[in-house]
């Protein structure tokens, strides 16, 4: 499945380019407008650099959450039925699909890092840290792609899924540490943000890329995001075949 996604990307370079524009807009318009705001960056000297992990995870989140649209499309055209009648285990199909979303997120993240390097934003360029960032990105994207497949198995039409996708993606994004530190949120929102896997994904990526932490441990970030993928993958493997009904 991952093999097929790489092939598809090779046929459609424009897709990566267009998808990469959105995080760059967040970084260079939103980030530049608030560049000198120390509160939003948790005291870090450059808000744009602070935003890099957040917009990288956000762009991947959008790819992953709307991945379920593909499941509904595949059901409508017959690919899903065909795939489910092959010997691949259901969990293998789900993880293959999640890998597909991860590959797209990886390509987006790579474009973003290239632009960050060209514009000389102050992040740490350590190979192991960058690898760690991409591991977290792949785990998180895979988890949200599986969540999307679970949602797709519950709805009948692409139009309804679009509505549900928006309903899910906005709270996930804004109630996380993607744009600002959790510490500046009111208490009730902090509780929500601490239950949000995206917060852990961004927190870990920020610690690896910038060397700053809002408290907590890096291993915990990997554990939470990895467990999120494991749980959603198992649930999606159970619900995914229901999409054909």
């Amino acid at each position: 499945m991952g093999w097929a996604e790489v092939r598809k990307l090779r046929h459609d370079h424009l897709d990566i380019f267009t998808r990469s524009v959105q995080p760059l807009l967040w970084l260079f318009i939103f980030g530049t407008a608030l560049q000198n705001n120390r509160t939003l960056s948790g005291g870090f000297h450059d808000y744009r650099a602070y935003l890099v992990p957040g917009v990288m995870a956000q762009a991947a989140l959008f790819v992953a959450i709307f991945f379920g649209l593909g499941v509904i499309w595949e059901r409508d055209v017959g690919q899903l039925q065909r795939l489910l009648a092959t010997p691949i285990p259901r969990l293998g199909i789900v993880l293959g699909k999640a890998t597909g979303a991860g590959i797209r997120a990886f390509a987006q993240g790579l474009v973003l890092l290239v632009v960050v390097a060209i514009t000389a934003l102050s992040i740490r360029w350590n190979v192991l840290d960058i690898i760690g960032v991409f591991v977290l990105l792949l785990l998180g994207t895979g988890g949200f792609a599986c969540l999307s497949m679970i949602l797709a198995s519950l709805v009948r039409t692409r139009e309804r899924f679009m509505g549900i996708g928006q309903l899910v993606v906005m709270p996930l994004f804004f109630a996380s540490s993607a744009l600002y530190p959790i510490a500046i949120m009111p208490t009730w929102l902090q509780v929500v943000a601490h239950a949000n896997p995206l917060s852990y994904e961004v927190h870990g990526m920020r610690e690896l890329l910038l060397g700053i932490s809002a408290g907590g441990w890096l291993w915990l970030d990997f554990l939470v995001v990895g467990s999120f993928l494991a749980i959603t993958a198992v649930v999606a493997a159970k619900t995914y075949p229901r999409a054909i009904l």
Binding site: A4, D76, V77, G78, R82, A85, T86, P87
Partner: peptide, 30 residues
Amino acid sequence: RQSIGYVPQAISIDGALTARENLEFYGRVT
């Protein structure tokens, strides 16, 4: 599933892959 082939009524070819890649893909997954 290891013993069967199945072509549903709906179109099951992946439009974003070439004909050769579709053959390769189904060769792998079956």
